[in-house]
Design a binder for these strands. Structure first.
Length: 670
RNA sequence: GGUCCCGUAGCUCAGUCGGAUAGAGCGUUCGCCUCCUAAGUGAAAGGCCGGUGGUUCGAAUCCACCCGGGAUCACCA
């Protein structure tokens, strides 16, 4: 019996007892993990809840402890339960039969829900993340977005869902226009010259997106003193949107190259995509017109004949309160007839949900080393057979918290068009920004005003060229990790050392970004981000590596995992071993390792990958304690050794699976 | 002005729809490698959970107000 099954049995027993004894239906039964192993394996605060409900129903006050006492007898008969305690103010603490649980879960898959991506009957959801403007290199803030999104997609997959990962490419916006202005008017380049530059850069070992990073900052500077340049931008933007001209072609090259650079950067971190939908196709296929038609028909938006918004199409929003400076209603079509960004976003969200009634054309963009493909939208007809894109049951948009208002508008808009799907079909996975401490900004060579220096943090800005570039940080992490590997395993072949250093760098960066909850502003600190000690990805990897080395050496003592499992499964009672364990860390280890599946479910339900990151860390910590307290290979008692080996095996499989879901690999050695 | 987020140990953060002695990491101090990897580990010190009221048997958690910090509220993109 797995943890999930046990919990379901216990909940069912409580539910029926509550309705039998008190005539109350407990629809939601909370189960907690007690703060200490001595308190048991599951804690139910149901008596508190019942006391409240009884008071509501009858007005009579009942002592939670007495209620707990009366419920206790309904849990005791459950098969795997060994003991039920009433503790504290009225907790029902359940202890499971440890030996039986161990024997039952020796080989259990820590994450049993797998899904076949080609199975069209499985529930499909879409996760959009990354979505970096394709005009410069990605910085650490973009990486937070991508790591969150990528990890969340892995979490959803682990709960048994089919997940499509989309990376939206805004290739026709002002940001791209700015860089195009830089190439054309600051540097006097045409497409041929840019291609030549691109080749030169590649030969010199720098990359196109880094060049654009600096150019973008230069253009931003130039605008401040050159009004004429700004006018040129308006023209460039117009030409890009119109398409089918030399400027648009040039912009397409710039944007596409940046997309390639950014997806390469993300690939270094194990982040991949299924589809890159582009803004240009949304424009050219007139997604908005189609959405507009539906919205007009359904009365979701209306024309404003007079007043401040005369001539506009607006979406009313009663629940959003107006203030002195701002209107409550949201304009989707301007008085000059053009659509706003939010309007386009609603049309696009409709496509994602499969309710627009239009589809893109697609072409193959990239094939990863293992054969996995990225597709991109195209103005031309499809060039290959491809799977069906879009049409997710739920759409998760990973976008920073500053976009909460427009995301809210989009959600309300699509819910008005499709009330049966409602607002729950659109989820804004919001997260706070990554900012720089004033010290870190100065370390990067930026001059700060006295005012800036007093601020708690400084926002990164692509426009100013202020930020920690993702590739730079990964390079530094890899170099540091390589030095550490070198000092420990000088004898390894160098390609293996490099691979390990890479895995450690990825682990460090991903864990660093995931250990914070989404609504915490990360004030970037080099020392903390570059650390391999304490609460880091490296710590978790190290535990797994040590666990694996036990199994590498198992043969040296003439032992096999299968024999150990067999002995444990066939042992009459393991009580002597498990109960005699002074710190009871054998049991703590086993039960914690069995909680991965429920932790993943929790993380998915709360849209919070940090929950899983924290779990992986506590698992690694528990293993280190277990490892420290028990000499596994040198244990002479055969049965005890077998228990230790099987528990270590449960721990390493669970830890490995948890890390994999976080996008962190376990190195062979470190 | 409206809305949202944050305020917990010297620092950076967790804290499971309100519950058991408020937990980690870093930093500080003192320990642990004849033994499965010391990127590890044991111990100590460190807290009016921003403030004041309220709800409750019970509040870091919920409500109200206040104080600090941040974001956002365009016919921009």
């Amino acid at each position: 019996m797995t943890i999930t099954e046990i919990v379901e049995l216990l909940k069912a027993a409580l539910r029926s007892a509550a309705s039998e004894k008190y005539g109350i239906d407990l629809d939601q039964i909370v189960v907690e993990t007690p703060p200490k192993t001595e308190f048991g394996d599951f804690a139910f605060p149901a008596a508190f809840e019942l006391a409240k409900l009884i008071k509501q129903a009858t007005g009579e006050k009942q002592n939670p402890r007495a209620i707990a006492e009366s419920l206790r007898s309904c849990l005791e008969p459950v098969e795997i339960v060994s003991k039920v305690d009433v503790a504290g103010a009225g907790y029902l603490n359940v202890f499971v039969d440890r030996g039986k649980f161990l024997a039952d879960n020796l080989t259990a898959d820590p994450l049993p829900n797998t899904v076949d991506p080609t199975d069209e009957t499985a529930v499909k959801v879409c996760v959009e993340h990354t979505s970096v403007n394709p005009n410069k290199a990605a910085h650490i803030g973009h990486v937070r977005n991508s790591v969150l999104g990528d990890t969340f997609h892995r979490i959803l997959k682990a709960t048994g869902k089919r997940v499509e990962v989309q990376n939206y490419i805004d290739n026709t916006g002002v940001q791209v226009a700015d860089v195009v202005v830089g190439f054309m008017y600051l540097e006097g380049r045409d497409l041929g010259s840019i291609k030549a530059l691109d080749a030169e850069l590649a030969a010199a070992g720098t990359s196109f997106d880094y060049y654009c990073w600096d150019l973008y900052a230069k253009v931003g500077q130039a605008y401040q003193s050159d009004e004429a340049l700004k006018a040129k931008r308006a023209n460039v933007l117009h030409l890009i949107e119109a398409g089918d001209n030399a400027t648009a072609e040039l912009a397409d090259y710039v944007a596409t190259r940046n997309v390639q650079c950014i997806t390469d950067t993300m690939e270094r971190l194990g982040i991949r995509y299924d589809l890159l939908p582009r803004e240009s196709e949304i424009l050219h296929l007139h997604f908005w017109d189609k959405a507009f038609e539906q919205m007009k028909q359904l009365g979701v938006i209306h024309y404003e004949p007079e007043g401040k918004h005369a001539g506009c199409w607006v979406m009313p929003w009663e629940s959003h309160t107006a203030s002195d400076d701002h209107e409550a209603d949201k304009i989707l079509v301007r008085s000059n007839g053009t659509v706003t960004y939010t309007g386009k976003d609603i049309a696009y969200q409709m496509w994602k949900l499969g309710i627009l009634g239009l589809d893109f054309n697609y072409r193959l963009f990239h094939t990863y080393a293992d054969g996995k493909q990225i597709w991109i939208t195209t103005p031309n007809p499809d060039d290959h057979q491809h799977t069906h894109f879009g049409g997710g049951e739920t759409i998760y948009n990973v976008i920073d918290t500053r976009q909460s208002y427009p995301q809210e508008v989009v959600k309300k808009g699509v819910a008005a068009i499709s009330p049966e799907r409602g607002e729950k079909a659109s989820v804004h996975l919001a997260y706070e920004m990554v900012a720089l401490s004033p010290a870190a900004a100065e370390e990067l060579g930026f001059e700060l005003s006295d005012e800036d220096r007093k601020r708690p943090f400084i926002e990164m800005s692509g426009r100013k060229g202020l930020g920690v570039k993702a590739d730079d940080l990964i390079d530094r992490l890899e170099a540091n990790a390589l030095a550490e590997v070198e000092s420990r395993h000088a004898d390894l072949p160098s390609d293996q050392k490099v691979r390990i250093a890479h895995q450690l760098a990825v682990g460090a960066l991903r864990y660093f970004l995931l250990k914070f909850t989404r609504n915490t502003v990360i004030v970037f600190d080099f020392k903390e981000a570059l650390s391999f000690e304490g609460e880091t990805g490296c710590f978790c990897q190290y535990s797994a590596v040590r666990a694996n080395s036990i199994f590498r050496k198992l043969g040296d003592i003439g032992e096999t995992l299968e024999d150990c499992r067999k002995r444990v499964a066939e042992a009459g009672s393991l009580d002597e071993i498990i109960s005699a364990d002074p710190a009871s860390d054998i049991w703590s280890m086993a039960i914690l390792a069995s909680r991965l599946e429920e932790t993943v479910r929790q993380a998915a339900a709360a849209n919070e990958p940090a929950i899983l990151a924290k779990y992986a860390f506590s698992l690694a910590k528990a293993f280190n304690l277990f490892y420290h307290n028990h000499k596994i290979l040198s244990e002479t008692d055969e049965l005890k050794r077998s228990v230790l080996v099987t528990v270590a095996d449960m721990a390493r499989r669970s830890l490995t699976a948890a890390l994999e879901t976080l996008g962190i690999e376990v190195p062979e050695k470190m």
